Amino acid sequence: MGRAQGQLSHGIVILDPEGLNGFVNNDPRGAGLVRAAQSRDTSVAVSDLTLVEAWHPKVRMDRFRWHASRLEVPPVTEAISWQAIDLLRNADLHAHKYAIGSVVAATSLGCTGPRIIVTSDVDDIDELCGDRGRAVGV
């Protein structure tokens, strides 16, 4: 007998750097969201740029790699890059400050089903995605 499908089944939860750090550091909110999504057979991902932004010298590399290995890591394709630019342009935001957030948003928008972005910048993600994705704060 299979698992009952939750409201996120066949969608995606994508983590921004703070969401990823919450997962790596076993923060109850961040790690809990990841575990809940995975228990519902929902894809949990991070952009490959998020890995770069989230890493810092106080993070144990073995722990960081182990947690990242539990997630999907879609590459930033040319299509995602152009979508991120369109999101920035439509929201009238500057790439210098919002580049990675726009890539995270564009990555989520390229997926089917419900899209949830776990972020510390809920307002920014809401501005970039509009009603096509949902931001959840960490």
Rank of each mutant, 00 (worst) to 15 (best):
L88A: 06
A91S: 13
E72R: 14
P75D: 10
P57A: 06
G110F: 00
E78H: 11
A79C: 01
Q5R: 14
D27G: 08
L128K: 02
S108N: 01
G32A: 05
D131N: 12
R115C: 02
D41M: 09
V46C: 12
V34G: 05
Q7D: 13
L87V: 04
T50D: 04
R3P: 01
R134H: 12
A45Q: 09
S69N: 14
A36F: 05
S9I: 08
N90K: 13
D126M: 10
S108K: 02
H56F: 07
E53S: 03
C129A: 15
W82T: 11
H96L: 13
V103Y: 03
T77V: 08
E72D: 15
S81C: 12
D131Y: 00
R63S: 13
A45M: 10
L15M: 06
V52N: 00
M61G: 05
W82M: 12
D16S: 11
W66L: 12
S9K: 15
V73M: 12
L88E: 01
V103H: 03
G32S: 07
T107R: 06
I117M: 06
W55N: 01
V59I: 09
K97E: 15
D16K: 09
D27E: 14
I100C: 07
C129Y: 01
G130S: 05
I116H: 08
R3L: 14
V138K: 00
G11M: 05
P17A: 15
H94G: 03
A37M: 09
I85G: 02
I100G: 04
P74L: 06
L33E: 08
G30P: 07
I117D: 04
I80W: 04
T107E: 12
R60N: 14
R35G: 02
H10C: 04
D27L: 09
A54E: 08
E18V: 11
G19A: 09
A45H: 12
A54I: 06
L8I: 11
I125A: 02
P75A: 13
K97W: 07
K97A: 14
A36S: 13
K58W: 00
R29S: 08
D41A: 14
I14C: 04
K97F: 07
G19I: 08
G133W: 02
R29F: 05
T42I: 10
D124N: 05
G6Y: 07
A54P: 03
I12T: 15
S108D: 03
L8G: 10
I117P: 01
G22A: 10
V46G: 03
P114G: 01
M1L: 09
D27N: 15
T50F: 04
R132Y: 00
L128F: 04
N26F: 07
K97D: 14
R65D: 02
L87T: 01
R35D: 10
L93H: 01
I116F: 06
L8E: 05
H56S: 11
G113A: 02
T119I: 07
I14H: 03
N21F: 03
V46I: 15
I116M: 08
A4T: 13
E127D: 11
L88Y: 03
S69C: 03
D123V: 07
R134C: 04
G113Y: 00
D48A: 11
P75W: 02
V59P: 00
H94T: 13
W66F: 12
S43M: 10
Q7K: 13
L15S: 07
